[in-house]
Every structure is written in C-alpha cells, then in structure tokens.
Computed example of a mutant assay.
Amino acid sequence: MKTWRNCLAILTLLGATAPAIAADNVILTIDQESAQHHFTLQQLAALPQTTITTATPWTTGQHRYQGVAIDTLLQRLNLSPQVLKVHALNDFWARVPTSVARQYRAILATHVDGQPMSRRNKGPLWVIFPLSEHPELNQEKYHNYMVWQVRTIKAE
C-alpha cells in the first residue's frame, strides 16, 4: 500500500511540475550578428502585450490576437535591423521589412481569443498584421509576412 501511495505522490508531483517545465522551454530565438537572444513563453508574456482583432485569409471571421509588438521586442534588445528574416518550424521563411512591421504595429501573437496558440492553430508564435484595420495590407505580399509557427528571427 505504501508503494502505491509513493507512486501516486510521484505522479502528482510530476503532473504539477510538467506545465512549469514546458513553459520554460525556449520558443523563440532572435539572431543578430554578434549574439543570440532566447525567449520562453513566460519571458515574452512578461513584456508589454498588444492585441489585434482581425480576419486573416487562413481563419474564419475575426479573432483577437495577443502578443508582444515586434517593435517592443526590438527596442528591448536595442536592435534596429532593416529586415527581419522570420523562420517557421517547417522551414518556411519570409523577409519582413522592419519599417513595415513597425508602421502597422505587427505582433508576435502567443494567444488567440484568450487561448494560448498551439502548433495545430499556427502557434506557438504567429506574426500578425492588422489586416481588417488596414485593407491595403490584404494582399499576398503582406500575407507572406504573416509567418506562423515562428521559431527564429534573424535581424539583418
């Protein structure tokens, strides 16, 4: 009986710590010439958050996206690159002009409609532009900037 209680205690302990361990995993690396900056979901969440409510070509209706503004992240790292080469988990990448990301206040979304974004729903990070607020962005050129399942960003 004591062995059963010990096993239950261990399983309970592991279950209680599993989310903390997963939350500590690096989900974003920002590469610059001289350094790499690694971020966990918790570290990104600790930065000032921004929301964008918009429709996208890949979703039905409008959704509320929350995350850190790309401009905020660059300011925190004291970076001012011309271009951000954004890489996804599936090796897709796009070169996003920093001026465009700043002008339209693009974000690295971590949540959609109040829920954390999973890989299945384009997470854990998705570059979101406010397409509904700025109809001029609703074209393929800008759609390509909206990389989902972001893993790394190279500051060029």
Rank of each mutant, 00 (worst) to 15 (best):
I30W: 05
T60F: 06
T40L: 04
L28D: 08
S80F: 00
S99C: 06
D24R: 08
H38L: 05
Q149I: 09
L28N: 10
Y145Q: 12
Q139A: 14
T50W: 10
W58F: 02
T53Q: 08
L47H: 07
R5S: 13
L77I: 01
L108H: 07
P57L: 02
Q62S: 10
W148L: 15
L108E: 07
T54F: 06
V86P: 01
A22S: 09
L73W: 04
L77S: 03
T54Y: 06
N138Q: 14
N25W: 06
V68R: 02
P124Y: 09
R151A: 15
I52R: 04
I30Q: 04
Q103I: 08
D71E: 11
V127Q: 00
R64D: 12
I128M: 11
Q115L: 09
N144P: 01
N6C: 13
D91S: 11
T50D: 10
D91H: 10
L79H: 03
T56S: 08
T152V: 11
L47E: 08
L41V: 00
A46L: 03
L108S: 08
P97E: 03
T59Y: 09
T60N: 10
E133S: 12
E140N: 13
I10G: 12
S80K: 07
W148N: 15
L108D: 05
W126T: 00
K154C: 12
E136S: 08
A101S: 11
I30L: 15
L131H: 09
H143R: 05
Q115P: 00
L84R: 02
Q75N: 11
V68K: 01
L89S: 11
T29L: 06
V86E: 01
L73S: 02
E156K: 07
V96F: 01
P135E: 03
I27R: 07
R76K: 13
L77W: 04
G15K: 13
W4K: 15
L84T: 05
D24S: 12
E33S: 10
I21W: 15
Q36P: 00
I21N: 14
W58R: 04
T3L: 13
N121H: 02
W93D: 05
T17S: 15
H143P: 01
L73Y: 04
